[in-house]
Nucleic acid binder design. Structure first.
Length: 799
DNA sequence: ATAGGGTTAG
């Protein structure tokens, strides 16, 4: 492209590109204005009026210009076409449609000498084109023969702005064909249409042509080429053109920034931005919004904050776009308080700013604040849109507010938002989250159109419950509808199979997926690690982990947590140590979830001492780390150590959560420390405002069982605020065994529940013990067989 | 005698 020969002389129709016109005309304007205001009533020639009108129009003083026209008509001074032309120009500057139409009417009233005047027709065309009035502009364009560059440019620009990119490009080609040379104003528009239609070849042609006709140094053409190549994903060429711009302005830099950003090169965006600052370029909103967007993508908190500071220092006020991108940045990196304060500073809040604030609350699980903001948004007369409803529905799912979710769904139906595909996905997610799969399926069935995301949502909905048959059915149906599964679809199907213990099928799917050219993501690996670990296929999980490393994929902290869980479930301290070594070499111990999983692994593999050693090594002791250690102590029946750690935790102001108390209570109740159990239980409620869950009550009940307080245990069970689940039933049954109150049979057991949750294998043990205690060896052996069938972990037998 | 342009958030 760059090797095309440049013409020896520039195009005679065109002259040199007007790229650097920066005539400072403020002083001239001022002189003209004072002259015109002073001369209105003087008897002066029409050329003088023309100048007055022209200068008023340029300053946006349309009203004054109109007054002069009226004065002229009143004084019967002849008004020529140029006068109307200047007035129209004023309307172009101001995009004043009404006023321009009035001038148009006057022109028509003055007869064909005016209305057929080529200059006026061109002006009118430019005016209507700028005001995005396609029909009027098209009519006027048809009357011009031949149209000049300005008319062509106006039409092409109009089509480009309104998304009629084919028409814009056809116009450009026709114009070139009939011999009108494009100028440096049309070329950027033509390129914009090329990038909108992703026509890389055509754009390259225009690039070559533009170089040939003398725009090789024009900063406007070159900047729009950078943008064009960036939007078409040809980053090398964008960079090449960028390097060739002799005098870059801020738009050239910004175009390059946006090119990096839109091609996912966030680090490069950040780097280029600092080069801009070194170069002393005066940054604009576009520079800062692009930088903020890249910072948000890579969660570069420091950089984003600096951009905020630069924006403030540059005196850029928080308008909609800059404010929104700041808001977006703070939301994405999870700094909700900063997002709130930015939100308060934004001058013109709109639906988008509200939506961002609300979704950041939802993401931060501050559901009440999210709902409150929705109410405030309504109070300020903003209507909920699709994005708002997606947030609201997600909040309902998060908070288990299914009834409210149904109301939200109703709102969508009444306001025609339910055909929006992301809303549809959110609704499917809502119903599936509470197990109402029939409703989720119905929403899906009545949809007029569905995209990949909607299909994937339904497939995931079935998969999470281990309904692999339904998941697979929709996976294949989707393909019959002509949609290719993406990695999300495959991930869901694999999850569904693993949840349903179809380990072999899941692994088959995994290889099929790779065979069809879909690369696994970290989510795929995570699903596999956890799925295999929980299905007792720890060895397979470890093998896959090795495969992943040999493919040079850097595992995430969650993947490592998964493989550690596999070691824990295999009770394989040997593999655990190997993974431990890997973690130390790659510096993963700084990750909270890795540290917690490592502690958990050592505790479950029998070495509470090694678990403690890791715990002491971890520098950033966050709650999951404490919880893992506490659960380890509970497992090893070390109640005193657990209580000590609880004190330590409080000393360092780490707020305990539900899991903390589950571990603590179970450690104490196993040790029969009745006073401590009651004290901790009370603290949980009064100091930390945690509503006790089933497992907490369960600890109470088993403590009471241990102490033989049958009456008290029964009282607690009957007072439970929810239907007791199998944990509680287990304690109850243990009690019954103790007191020989009732006869037992397998048919009393909620068997379907056991089939789903392998962790509950401990239940089988309880039941078989009960049978054994009653001398019913037949029943006990039946249960043992069931255990085997359901892949129950071996280590459960001893607990 | 004469006109206008490229980059922007969820």
């Amino acid at each position: 492209m760059a090797s095309l020969p440049l013409p020896t002389q520039s195009n005679p129709l065109l002259g040199p590109p007007k790229s650097m016109k920066t005539k400072n005309s403020a002083q001239i304007h001022e002189a003209n204005l004072s002259k015109s205001l002073g001369n209105i009533n003087g008897g002066i020639s029409s050329t003088s009026f023309l100048h007055q009108i022209s200068s008023l129009a340029k300053q946006g003083l349309n009203h004054e210009a109109f007054r002069i026209l009226n004065q002229m008509e009143a004084d019967e001074i002849p008004v020529g076409p140029e006068i109307y032309g200047e007035l129209l120009q004023g309307c172009v500057y101001e995009r004043a449609l009404r006023e321009g139409q009035q001038i148009h009417a006057r022109i028509l009233k003055n007869g064909s000498f005016f209305s057929e005047n080529e200059y006026l027709v061109t002006k009118l065309l430019v005016f209507y084109a700028k005001c995005d009035c396609s029909t009027e502009a098209g009519d006027l364009f048809g009357r011009l023969r031949p149209p000049n560059v300005f008319s062509w440019a106006a039409m092409i620009g109009l089509n480009c702005r309104n998304g009629f990119h084919e028409n814009a490009l056809l116009g450009f080609c026709e114009m070139v064909e009939i011999g009108v040379f494009p100028d440096n104003f049309v070329v950027p528009n033509a390129l914009k249409s090329c990038s909108a239609l992703q026509l890389v070849g055509i754009g390259r042609g225009i690039h070559g042509y533009a170089m040939k006709i003398g725009f090789s140094e024009c900063v406007y053409v070159l900047s729009s080429l950078v943008d064009f190549y960036g939007k078409c994903g040809v980053l090398e060429d964008a960079l090449k053109v960028f390097a060739q711009i002799p005098e870059r302005n801020v738009v050239s830099w910004n175009s390059m920034l946006v090119s990096f950003l839109q091609n996912g090169l966030d680090e490069e965006t950040l780097e280029l931005f600092s080069e801009m600052r070194v170069d002393g370029v005066q940054l604009t909103r576009v520079s800062i919004t692009s930088f903020l967007s890249a910072s948000a993508n890579v969660e570069a908190v420091l950089e984003g904050r600096q951009a905020h500071a630069v924006a403030v220092a540059s005196g850029l006020e928080l308008d909609n776009i800059l404010g929104t991108s700041l808001l977006n940045f703070y939301c994405k990196v999870g700094l909700v308080e900063d997002a709130e304060s930015v939100f308060d500073c934004i001058i013109n809040r709109d639906v988008v700013t509200w939506n961002l604030l609300i979704s950041s609350y939802v993401q931060d699980e501050q559901i009440e604040k999210a709902f409150h903001s929705c109410r405030l948004m309504r109070r300020e007369n903003f209507k909920f849109d699709c994005v708002t409803l997606c947030s609201i529905l997600a909040a309902c799912v998060n908070d288990g507010k299914i009834e409210l979710g149904r109301v939200g769904h109703g709102f969508c139906i009444r306001n025609n938002l339910d055909s929006d595909l992301s809303v549809m996905s959110a609704v499917i997610d809502l119903y599936s989250s509470c197990g109402k799969m029939e409703l989720a399926q119905r929403v899906f069935d009545v949809a007029a159109s569905r995209d990949l995301v909607v299909w994937n949502t339904l497939i995931f909905a079935y998969a999470q419950y281990g309904l692999s048959g339904e998941a697979l059915k929709h996976f294949y149906q989707m393909q019959l509808h002509g949609l290719h599964p993406n990695v999300v679809s495959w991930n869901s199907v694999i999850l569904g199979l693993l949840q349903n213990r179809q380990v072999k099928d899941a692994l088959d799917m995994f290889s099929q997926m790779q065979f069809t050219g879909v690369n696994p993501t970290l989510i795929t690996w995570t699903t596999l690690m956890f799925g295999l670990a929980l299905n007792g296929c720890g060895y397979e999980a470890i093998r896959l982990f090795g495969e992943m490393l040999s493919m040079n994929i850097r595992p995430s902290a969650i993947v490592i947590a998964g493989v550690l869980l596999a070691c824990a479930h295999m009770v394989s301290i040997w593999y655990g140590r190997v993974i431990h070594g890997y973690i130390m070499r790659k510096g993963f111990l700084s990750s909270v979830s890795v540290a917690a999983s490592l502690i958990d692994m050592y505790a479950k593999c029998g070495s509470i001492d090694l678990a403690k050693k890791i715990f002491d090594m971890v520098s950033n002791k966050e709650m999951p780390v404490y919880n893992a250690m506490l659960s380890g102590y509970a497992l090893h029946r070390q109640a005193r150590e657990a209580l000590e750690l609880y004190q330590y935790m409080q000393h360092f102001r780490t707020k305990p959560d539900e899991i903390t108390f589950t571990a603590l209570l179970s450690a104490c109740s196993h040790a029969g420390l009745a006073d401590e159990v009651l004290k901790v239980f009370a603290e949980m409620i009064s100091m930390y405002h945690i509503t006790p869950q089933k497992e907490h009550y369960d600890c109470m009940v088993s403590l009471l069982v241990n102490c033989g307080s049958f009456q008290e245990a029964c009282r607690i069970i009957s007072a439970l605020p929810f239907k007791p689940d199998d944990h509680v039933i287990r304690s109850l049954l243990t009690l019954c065994k103790e007191h020989y109150m009732i006869e037992l049979d397998e048919k009393d057991m909620p068997r379907h529940k056991f089939m789903v949750e392998p962790e509950n294998s401990v239940n089988y043990v309880s039941f078989s013990k009960i049978h054994a205690a009653h001398g019913r060896w037949h029943g006990a052996s039946r249960i043992a067989a069931l255990m085997k069938m359901n892949w129950v972990r071996k280590d459960c037998g001893s607990s």
